[in-house]
C-alpha cells in the first residue's frame, strides 16, 4: 500500500513539475529552475558523501569552475553551440577533478575535509585576486549558447519557460545516471568503500582508483549544474566556488538523507524553500539558516528520507 502511495506521490509531483510553467509566475519558474540546478549539484555531492563516504567541503570548485569555462569560452559576437559548450565545460572541469582528486584522495578523514576546503579556496583566491576572469566582480557571459538541433528545433535559453524545461530534463537525466552508477558493479565497489574501505582494499580493490573515478564523475556532474547556473544568470563570480556553496550543499545532502538517490531532491527543495521563507522574515536570515542546520545535524542525522513514507517498502 505504502509503495503505491509513494509512487502516486512522486508521480503527482513530477506531473506538477511538468505543468508548473502553465500557472507559475515568472519569478517562481525561475526559482524552480534554480532549485532543479541545485538538485543536480547536490546529487553530485551525494555521490561522494552519501555513496562513497567522502566528505568534501570543496565541491563548489567544480560548480563555479564550469561556469567560468563557459564564460571564458563564449565568443563576443556570436552564440556558441550549446552542446559543444556544455561538453567543453564538463571536460575542462573533469580535468580539474582529476588534479584535485589525485591530491586530496591521498588523505583520509578529517584531512580529506581540510584539504578539499583548502583546494577549493585556492581556486576562489585565484579567481578573486587575478585579472584572468574579471577578478572579484566576476564576468558576464557574452552570449547565451544556442540550443538548436540543426534547423528544426530550437530552445530560447533567455525564455524562462524554455530554460525551466531544460533544467527539468537535465535533472531527471542526472538522477537516472546516478541511479545507474549506484546499481552498477562500480557502484557496488563504492558501497564497499563507503561502509568499510579497509576490507575493500584487502579484498583486492585498488580503492584509490575507484575513489578517483568517482570523484571525477562527481566533478563532471557538478560541472553540468554550474554550466546551467551560469547560463541562467548570465554571470559568474568567485562566490560560486566559495566554500559556503559547498557547505550549503552538504547541508542539503544531509537534510534529504545521504546515500538515497531522492535525498538531494527532497533536501535541496526543502532548504531552498525554507531559506526563501527566512529571507522574507528578516535580513539576518542566515542566522535562522544556521540554527536550522545545527538542529538538523544534531537531531535528524538521517534526513527526511529517514521518514517511513519515503522509504521503499521493507
Amino acid at each position: 500500500m505504502r509503495a503505491i502511495l509513494r509512487k502516486l506521490f512522486f508521480g503527482l509531483i513530477f506531473l506538477a513539475l511538468l505543468l508548473l510553467p502553465f500557472w507559475g509566475d515568472r519569478f517562481y519558474i525561475q526559482f524552480a529552475s534554480k532549485i532543479l540546478i541545485m538538485i543536480v549539484f547536490v546529487s553530485s555531492l551525494n555521490l561522494l558523501v552519501g555513496f562513497t563516504g567522502l566528505v568534501s567541503l570543496g565541491h563548489a570548485a567544480f560548480f563555479g569552475f564550469s561556469g567560468y569555462v563557459l564564460a571564458l569560452l563564449s565568443p563576443v559576437d556570436s552564440a556558441m553551440n550549446f552542446f559543444v559548450a556544455l561538453l567543453a565545460s564538463i571536460l575542462c572541469t573533469g580535468v580539474l577533478g582529476v588534479i584535485f582528486g589525485a591530491l586530496v584522495l591521498r588523505t583520509k578523514g578529517i584531512f580529506f575535509i581540510m584539504s578539499t576546503l583548502a583546494l577549493g579556496e585556492m581556486l576562489f583566491y585565484f579567481l578573486h585576486d587575478t585579472d584572468l576572469a574579471g577578478g572579484s566582480d566576476g564576468m558576464y557571459i557574452n552570449s547565451r549558447p544556442d540550443v538548436s538541433f540543426f534547423d528544426w528545433w530550437q530552445l530560447d535559453l533567455a525564455n524562462v519557460v524554455h530554460f525551466y524545461y531544460l533544467a527539468l530534463i537535465t535533472a531527471v537525466i542526472v538522477l537516472i545516471v546516478i541511479r545507474a552508477i549506484i546499481h552498477s558493479p562500480f557502484g557496488r565497489v563504492l558501497a564497499g568503500i563507503c561502509v568499510n574501505e579497509h576490507r575493500t582494499k584487502a579484498l583486492g580493490y585498488n580503492t584509490y582508483k575507484f575513489k578517483l573515478v568517482c570523484f571525477v564523475i562527481a566533478s563532471m556532474i557538478a560541472a553540468v549544474s554550474g554550466f546551467l547556473s551560469a547560463v541562467q544568470f548570465g554571470v559568474v563570480n568567485p562566490e560560486m566556488v566559495g566554500w559556503h556553496v559547498s557547505g550549503h550543499a552538504l547541508m542539503m545532502v544531509i537534510l534529504g538523507g545521504k546515500g538515497a538517490i531522492l535525498g538531494p531532491v527532497i533536501g535541496t527543495t526543502t532548504l531552498m524553500l525554507v531559506e526563501e521563507g527566512f529571507q522574507m522574515v528578516t535580513k539576518h536570515w542566515q542566522l535562522l539558516t544556521g540554527v536550522a542546520i545545527v538542529l538538523v545535524a544534531l537531531f535528524f542525522p538521517h534526513g527526511l528520507v529517514g521518514f517511513k513514507f519515503f522509504k521503499k517498502g521493507s
Binding site: 557547505g247 552538504l250 547541508m251 544531509i254 542566515q286 542566522l287 539558516t289 544556521g290 540554527v291 536550522a292 542546520i293 545545527v294 538542529l295 538538523v296 545535524a297 544534531l298
Partner: peptide
Amino acid sequence: LVTYGLIL
C-alpha cells in the same frame, strides 16, 4: 555540519 551552522 553543526560547526558550519555555528559559523553562519
